[in-house]
Amino acid sequence: MRPEENDDVKVRVLTLEAFADTIVPGEKRFPGDRAVAGAASGPGAVAAGAVELIETPAAGLSQGLDWYVTTLNERAREHAAREGLSLDPALPGFVALPFDDRVALVQTLTAPGHPEKELWISLALFSNMAFDTAAHMHTLDAIAEGHPGLAAMNLAAPDSDGLWRFPEYSYGRPLARRHPGTTASGSPA
């Protein structure tokens, strides 16, 4: 890998991480973590595997990642100029934004009427899915590895054959009157 390619990969990963961390924020992974802002306790979308999911060809975003990275950093610099912020030139524009400004920018980019809205929504959806569903992994593997999103949601574990069953599922007693108009078929009249 040539040095500039290596740099491109670093910029891409940092930028996508910073975006995903805006969607589901997490704690910093190590001192000096610049992509993850540390705005929330516990791991967030980045630790949940957001970049891996976004880069999965099946997701359909991988061909457009150069556009995403370039444009997001451009939008960040435009935002900084508007707000009078000076950004660390050593970092990609979006990564250099303080967390609150990342949030404000993502709100703008995903708001109804923004011409690029659908593209940013797609990136946000996969950032969410990495945390909420671990869609880049088999769910059993994700649970076994203690995937941070599934753990945070307290997803119950399956039976030993990998299938979910809940033998206890009901309060088992009448809890309301039925609608007086209910027909013999059990439907509304």
């Binding site: 929330a40 949030v103 969410n128």
Partner: peptide, 18 residues
């Protein structure tokens, strides 16, 4: 007080998903 469908406050309600 911030965004409703993503961000810090959204993550908090995910912890109460059950």
């Amino acid at each position: 007080t911030g965004p409703t469908w993503f961000g810090v406050e959204k993550k908090e309600i995910l912890r109460r998903w059950q």
